[in-house]
Structure formats: structure tokens, C-alpha cells
Amino acid sequence: MRAMSEWMWYLTRSTGIVAAVLAVASLVWGFTFSARNTGRRLKANWWLALHNWLGGLTLGFTGAHMLLAFLDTQAGLRFIDLFVPSGQVGWAIGWGVVAFWVFAVVTLTSIARVRRRLPRKAWHLVHLVSVPAVLVMAIHAYQIGSDALARWFLWGLAGLAGLAIYPLSVRLLGVAASRRAAASSTRLPARQRAAA
């Protein structure tokens, strides 16, 4: 006969962890998708659709995570604490709120972009904020501390970081390579001109 609030707590933790994994997965899919510009042959449709879907799921699980934390009477969170970060309930929770807002804005701007209501540059800038948001989310998970001493938690965190870093570096290397390529291709005609 476990108290209802105990189950709320267990579910708050598990939805939070799943949301974190989904966020990292979405990040990985996003970068792998955009890496197609940089020489990788991938089915763009499939990657993009799944990236969008994972992003949506992340937001969904984050919402569930917040709702459950609110319903857990023992946690003592007010409704306002879910949306306004403050020192009153501690920055550990505040970081989570910040990450939620970034995920929400990133998702909304992507929907707006699909409907052609947002310039690409603005959308892209907002989209990139999701990378630090995932970092902030990790800080939130650690500072909350329920599992901060557990070995599986720390290994999991390291594993997720590794997963995120790999496609990120592939993408960045790709960007660098294409810049170099672009630079040399614009230089080439000049050199030819000089030779002529």
C-alpha cells in the first residue's frame, strides 16, 4: 500500500530520465540529419521526420514530468514554480524550468518555420539554443540529486554526453570542411584568371 505521492515521485523521476534520453536522441538525429549537407548520404525524410517526432516527444515527456512533480504533494511545488525559475524552490528545479522553456520555444519556432512564418536565420539561431538547453537539463538532473550518487546515473550521464558529442563533432567538422571547400572553389577561378 504505497502512498500515491510515492508513485508520483517514481514516475516524476522516470519521465524525467526518459525526457532526457529523448532530448539527446533528438539532438543526435538533428545533427545527423543536417550532416547530410556535409557529405553523408542519408534518407533526409526519415531522419527529419524522426528528429521532429523525438523533439515533440521530449516536450511531451517534459510536460508529463512537470505535471507529475506538481501532483506529488510531498514535493511541495506550486503551479508557478513549474514555469518561473526562482531561488525559492532552489536552482536545481530552476534549471529544469529553463530547459523546458527552451524546448517549448524550439518546438514552437519549428512549427512556425514549417508554416513559413519565420525567417530561416532566426529559426536556426533559436534551434541551436537547444544544445546548451540539454546541458542545463543535465545540470538539473544532477543537482536534484535523487540519483546523484548512483553509479548507473553518472555512467548514463556520461554515455548521453558521448552520444551527443559524436554527431555534434561530425557536424562541426563537416561545416569546417564545407567552408574550406567553399573558400577554395571561390579562389580557384581567381587563380585561373591569374594564370590566364
Partner: peptide, 24 residues
């Protein structure tokens, strides 16, 4: 596109959530 993968990821997430809660 990626309908099966979408369904699979949703199912996996839901199962993981419930499973983790059970483990806790």
C-alpha cells in the same frame, strides 16, 4: 515517413518510463 520508428520510439519511451518507476 518513419512511421514505424515513431511508434517504436513512443512505445519504448512509455515502457521505459513505467519500467524505471517500477525499478525505483
Amino acid at each position: 515517413p518513419a512511421r514505424a520508428s515513431k511508434v517504436a520510439s513512443l512505445a519504448l519511451s512509455a515502457i521505459t518510463t513505467v519500467g524505471l518507476a517500477g525499478v525505483f
